[in-house]
């Protein structure tokens, strides 16, 4: 059975020797005026090596409406579930130079590998096309990305700059650094990136999910008071005008 990418990362985190990999900002604090950020991963590689940096989320099942033709018309033909792949997968670096395709597939070093791993339910003749559509959709949302020139080298020092999508949910993400040696060898380092809600968004999120009755009352009160308040404001303005 395949291990999830995050589980592999955690194992690597324990096994790998301590290295000077830094991830910034960490944690990513999602506040009221947050609009996404750029995650920077810095470190030192081995002489003559190439570097690929991957930030990845936990595996999840996602559900979609699937469109198809009904005669001359396009319509939703049913639901489709995708599982077995991370909900977020951002790749900085070029995996085309990697000759060992098993390695690419095992560590999901490119999005083709990710598409191949995706489980589609219900499985059918169109599963392959649906995998491609799934990757296309996730790329359009910024949740999957391949940044082939995303790693900048300065001697043996490297820095990956990865645009972080504003819709990435709070949680823990794995950061994996692949040092690809010229002789085909590989060294893997890993770190963790935390995304957390802070301030007002955290207050709203907790209230919505932990005190839902109060949240319902709050929503209704907000709607009615804003509506009536604006009514009163306009009434006064009208009175002045007349």
């Amino acid at each position: 059975m395949r291990r999830s990418v995050v589980a592999a990362l955690l194992a690597l985190l324990v096994a790998a020797p301590a290295r000077a990999v830094t991830v910034e900002p960490n944690p990513v604090r999602v506040s009221a005026f947050y609009r996404g950020t750029t995650v920077r991963v810095r470190g030192v590689t081995d002489p003559g090596s190439e570097v690929i940096v991957i930030v990845t989320g936990s595996d999840t099942e996602e559900r979609f409406d699937r469109k198809g033709r009904v005669g001359p018309l396009w319509a939703n033909l049913g639901k489709l579930a995708v599982s077995g792949v991370p909900r977020l997968h951002l790749i900085a670096g070029n995996a085309q130079a990697v000759r060992d395709r098993d390695l690419v597939q095992r560590h999901l070093l490119d999005l083709d590998a990710l598409a191949r791993r995706a489980r589609i339910a219900p499985a059918g003749a169109e599963a392959s096309a649906m995998r491609a559509e799934y990757v296309k959709l996730k790329k359009s949302k910024g949740m999957f990305a391949e940044l082939q020139n995303g790693v900048r080298m300065d001697g043996t020092a490297f820095e990956a700059q990865i645009p972080w999508p504003d819709m990435a949910p709070p949680g823990e993400y794995g950061v994996v650094i692949f040092h690809l040696h010229k002789d085909g060898g590989i060294r893997i380092e890993s770190a963790q990136l935390v995304v957390e809600l802070v301030g007002f968004p955290r207050f709203v999120d907790r209230m919505a999910f932990e005190q839902s009755f109060l949240y319902g009352l709050l929503s209704v009160s907000v709607a009615l008071s804003v509506g009536l308040l604006m009514g009163l404001v306009f009434k006064r303005k009208g009175a002045v005008g007349h």
Partner: peptide, 12 residues
């Protein structure tokens, strides 16, 4: 209904 959609999947 008649135009070909850019994406065949949408969040459920």
């Amino acid at each position: 209904l008649v135009a070909t959609p850019t994406l065949l999947l949408s969040p459920a």
